[in-house]
Write a protein that binds this DNA or RNA. Structure first.
Length: 591
RNA sequence: CGGGGUGUAGCGCAGCUUGGUUAGCGCGCCUGCUUUGGGAGCAGGAGGCCGGGAGUUCGAAUCUCCCCACCCCGACCA
């Protein structure tokens, strides 16, 4: 039993000034966590109760799925990560350090290498597979910008599992088992989630899906179809490719003077205002223009290569999408100095005429998939103050390939069914990957197959952000008064408030009740503070967010029909329950 | 790393523009009395390197420069 009179807790009346997102504000205000380091939080007693509850539920669901728990160090030598090339690919996000002898270590961001090596250590036969092992462990990532309290920290708790199978079918089965286990897990945590297809990024591998809790504070942007069940992270959206058009009858491309039109909007205004250039039937729009954006691609080895991207003029380049396409290279802006190195690039008037590896600039030129043969564009003529109209893809220009780098807009066509998609934000609470043989091969993990031949197992990896889930649950359930936990993760089942002064019958009745509830197996938080006013106790109870609040007050003094008030935190409904049936009433509530 | 913002008591803030008493308010904290169904009242009290450093000045929380930290927005990820 936690007693408020001596609990290591301080609730705050005001929002902390350094907290912006609601879960962060309330977790600090209600005394669950404190910031103790840049991107690092300490758990206070109530917070640690909730954390352990979430962790326990994750563990129970993993065990129920037949996965086995292990535990690895976070402090690891770098060699296994060098073998898979992740030491380099992970880049500055990896915490690197040295021991007293100068040997290099890292703080693990995930553990694929170590799990593969341990399987190599223990297993030799195909008959040992399939295998799924997992751990719940502290991970370290040197995030550029920790933010939003527990949602993005540099040290965080993650459940990571790894599957080992002999073939694709086995991997698919392990993947599906995790997918199903996660769906159950998040139902139990009362955490709404959307499963979206995703890119595997630095992890490598093929198939990958994210579980997003659809909440506005989420950092991930995803799209979902308004009519079918398609959903995808914007990074993973494949643009539906329109049909190519025949060239016959299409107007000839022609260069026109378009003075002072370095931006799409000035260009559109100009061509609509010029009687010779106007569209015969309608106004030109930004979607009629072809925008060519040049960026630098910085490869992990330090080399920098320019890249031109051609997209519809009404869209921006989505840096997340572009970055995901060039992973592990990084996207950097194309500077004024860079423009000087390529005099053929006329800023504001860049067109396909100079772009592409075989044209004057020699810059690789990748097109949005919508720019198919036969589409006609208004685009830069590679001279200042000139644009070209009716420039036709496939006839007048070609790219070096296509790229998914244009921003996705509300109302774009669904890649699956063609109707409209909508854009939403979500918190990434889990991510599942089919890795294939990348790790096993790099680390020489082989088993003997039924013909005594070496076989490289295929792996999957599956992560759940445990501490992040806690924040997401808080975010999904909180209200204007405070936190509002689902019972299973709440720091207690019952929050008992004593509404009476020292020595009053309320005190002894509440003490007896708390003890009886504990004996009955319920977890109790007892507000036995004598100096706190009742108003403070009510406010604190709502802030702390235990699902059931019990007030032992004036009702107990009714000699004929003594009652105790039971209040549901979420609905606010109150009920007076007869004193002699209160324990069984509450036990029933909590089961 | 770029852009924006904020650093004053445990927490939330004012003061800074226009330099000048002993740096102020609310909450919290300590002592005493009263109070107890929605953040109590009265009385008394403690608590500050005004983020750090350098400068300007007779004098700096206030003006100048440099640094640091934190928050928000952009490029990473559970």
């Amino acid at each position: 039993m936690h007693r408020m009179s001596n609990l290591f807790l301080r609730t705050l009346r005001d929002d902390p000034s350094d907290a912006e997102v609601p879960s962060h504000r309330l977790l600090v205000r209600a005394g669950y966590i404190r910031r103790s380091a840049p991107g690092g939080f300490s758990w206070l007693p109530l917070g640690y109760e909730v954390f352990r509850n979430v962790e326990r539920i994750v563990r129970e669901e993993m065990n129920a799925a037949g996965f086995q728990e292990v535990h690895f160090p976070a402090l690891l030598p770098i060699e296994p990560y060098q073998a898979t090339n992740r030491y380099e690919e992970y880049g500055p996000n990896l915490f690197r350090l040295q021991d007293r002898h100068g040997a290099d270590f890292l703080l693990a961001p995930t553990h694929e290498e170590m799990f593969a090596l341990t399987v190599k250590d223990l297993f030799s036969s195909y008959r040992d597979l399939p295998l799924v092992i997992y751990q719940i462990q502290t991970k370290f990532r040197d995030e550029v910008r920790p933010r939003a309290g527990l949602l993005r920290t540099r040290e965080f708790s993650m459940k990571d599992s790894y599957s080992f199978d002999l073939n694709e079918a086995g991997l698919q089965a392990s993947y599906d088992a995790h997918r199903a286990a996660y769906i159950k897990l998040f139902e139990r945590l009362e955490l709404p989630c959307v499963i979206v297809s995703a890119l595997s990024g630095a992890m490598g591998g093929s198939e990958s899906e994210e579980f997003l809790a659809p909440l506005p504070v989420g950092e991930d942007t995803f799209i979902r179809c308004t009519s079918c069940d398609f959903a995808a992270n914007v990074e993973a959206v494949h643009t539906p490719v329109p049909e190519a058009q025949a060239f016959t009858g299409l107007p000839v491309a022609a260069v026109h003077d378009t003075p002072k039109t370095p931006t799409i909007s000035t260009l559109v205004d100009y061509v609509n205002a010029d009687s010779a250039l106007r569209h015969p039937d309608r106004d030109w729009t930004a979607a009629d223009t072809l925008k060519n954006v040049v960026v630098n691609i910085k490869h992990p080895d330090g080399t920098v290569e320019p890249l031109a991207v051609g997209i519809e003029g009404h869209r921006e380049v989505d840096m997340k999408r572009l970055g995901a396409q060039v992973e592990p290279a990084q996207v950097e802006p194309f500077s004024e100095d860079d423009f000087k190195k390529y005099p053929s690039l006329k800023k504001g008037y860049i067109g396909p005429g100079v772009l592409g590896t075989t044209n004057e600039s020699g810059i690789r030129y990748l097109l949005d998939p919508r720019i198919v043969d036969g589409t006609q564009w208004i685009t830069g003529a590679d001279n200042y103050n000139q644009h070209v109209l009716h420039l036709t893809a496939g006839r007048d220009f070609v790219g070096d390939g296509t790229i998914e780098a244009a921003e996705v807009l509300d109302g774009d066509n669904c890649p699956s069914c063609g109707s409209e998609v909508e854009i939403a934000r979500g918190i990434e609470i889990a991510h599942i990957f089919q890795l294939g043989t990348k790790y096993a091969a790099a680390l020489d993990l082989t088993l003997r197959d039924e013909n005594d031949q070496p076989v490289t197992p295929t792996m999957g990896s599956y992560g759940v952000g445990v501490s992040r889930c806690l924040a997401a649950i808080a975010e999904a359930t909180l209200d204007d008064s405070g936190l509002c936990w689902p019972r299973e993760v709440a720091p207690a089942d019952i929050h008992v408030i004593i509404a009476g002064k020292d020595g009053s019958p309320q005190v002894s009745a509440a003490e007896d009740l708390a003890t009886s509830l504990e004996v009955a197996g319920l977890r109790v938080l007892l507000d036995d503070r004598s100096k706190a006013s009742l108003g403070v106790k009510f406010k604190d109870a709502e802030l702390i967010g235990v699902p059931t609040i019990v007030v032992v007050g004036r009702g107990i003094a009714d000699e004929e029909n003594p009652t105790i008030e039971v209040k549901d935190r979420r609905s606010g409904e109150r009920q007076d329950i007869p004193h002699d049936s209160i324990v069984e009433h509450l036990v029933a509530l909590c089961s």
